[in-house]
């Protein structure tokens, strides 16, 4: 569903990715692991369309989305949702308000409250609908960010270590819940982590990204 082909990317003069390829398929969870600073977040941002590769191609559903410094499909048209590392919940909106906002024109206004209740219910946070980000605990905020991403009705879900701030037990429970939902909805999910052991047990495939210039990609 999402594909990076031989992409290269630099921040200023510093190379971050070079000759890197990756494929995320519908209905499965791909874990992207590697040490801090190796370019995992950049790979997600390339898939989302928030960055454009200097070299190589990005494909969405087999269509060219970006290539060689050129953006072809803008981020909002890729059907991709992202849960950011810092969650990025909008401080001026309630949880329900954020979900309704991202639904936009896709869902008629009259249907939005029911849809919001359904998504929050699936994640077990229906009682948080009226709260703002400042009134949520770390775990609640992480689930609210996932709920917001799912409210976009995406075909791919990108998770940039969003549960890093949670204690191990809560992290595992939250991650399990989100992965199960992603698989059930047939999403292509990419989960970034710097802890290999953490994702080995629960991801369907794993790609390892070591430092540039020769990234090693291993699937299995």
């Amino acid at each position: 569903m999402l594909k990076l082909e031989d992409v290269a990317f630099r921040h200023g003069r510093q190379p971050v990715l070079s000759g890197f390829s990756l494929e995320a398929r519908a209905g499965e969870v791909l874990a992207l692991v590697g040490p801090t600073g190796c370019g995992k977040t950049t790979a997600l941002r390339l898939l989302a369309g928030l960055e454009v590769p200097e070299r190589g191609r990005v494909l969405v559903d087999g269509k060219l989305a970006a290539a060689d410094g050129r953006l072809v499909i803008p981020p909002e048209r890729r059907g991709v949702a992202m849960v950011f590392q810092r969650l990025a919940l909008w401080p001026h909106m309630t949880v329900a308000g954020s979900l309704e906002f991202v639904m936009g024109a896709r869902v008629p206004p009259a249907d939005r409250p029911a849809r919001v209740r359904a998504i929050l219910g699936e994640l077990g946070i229906a009682d948080l609908a009226g709260r703002r980000p400042g009134e949520l605990s770390g775990g609640q905020a992480a689930l609210a960010a996932v709920a917001r991403a799912l409210a976009q009705a995406p075909r791919a879900l990108l998770l940039d270590e969003p549960f890093g701030g949670l204690d191990p037990e809560l992290r595992e429970a939250t991650r399990g819940k989100v992965f199960a939902l992603a698989r059930a909805q047939g999403l292509a999910a990419v989960y970034v982590s710097h802890l290999r052991e953490e994702v080995e047990r629960c991801a369907d495939r794993m790609a390892e990204l070591n430092s540039v210039p020769e990234p090693v990609v291993r699937e299995g």
Partner: peptide
């Protein structure tokens, strides 16, 4: 103060106009 990720989350969901109006 809004932060880049907050803007990008809105961009992914609603595009540039949605980001402008909503966030």
């Amino acid at each position: 103060a809004v932060g880049r990720e907050e803007r990008e989350a809105a961009l992914l969901a609603r595009g540039r106009w949605g980001r402008f109006v909503g966030v």
